[in-house]
Amino acid sequence: MKRKIFFSIYFVAMFAIVLNGCKEDSDTTRPVINLIEPAEDDVLQIGNSNGIHFEAEFSDDEALASYKVDIHPDFDGHTHTRSSDETVDFEFNQSWPISGRNAPIHHHEIKIPENATPGDYHLMVYCTDVAGNESYIAVDVVLSHEAGNHHE
């Protein structure tokens, strides 16, 4: 019986020490991305000098750090094989710093050049907070010479 008591005390004491010594005050909550434009299956106009209308809201429980937009072709399902004609696959990869808990973003900085290959693309938006928590979302978009269906 003594031994049992000894063991229980040892056990409880060990956990007490561990749990006290290791306070978890650190942030493991991911930021939230609310992508408003472009939306799923939106058509983006090739060669539009005004740029794509990009609108999103980023939020985090602590502090935002950065977001990144990555656009790449999705021509054959997801095989990423190249087109063979004179046009060039459009690829976009750029990040911007953001801060605070909420960051509404609206810009026209993503421009699709005239020689971009039309077709299906993936548009991915990544966001990190200061602690390194990361979120991302992906939407399918179509690049076309026709006017896009999104508003300016």
């Binding site: 950065s66 991915m124 390194g132």
Partner: peptide
């Protein structure tokens, strides 16, 4: 927290 330059990658 550093963005990768590789396509299709986050940090």
């Amino acid at each position: 927290g550093e963005w990768s330059v590789l396509p299709h990658a986050g940090q």
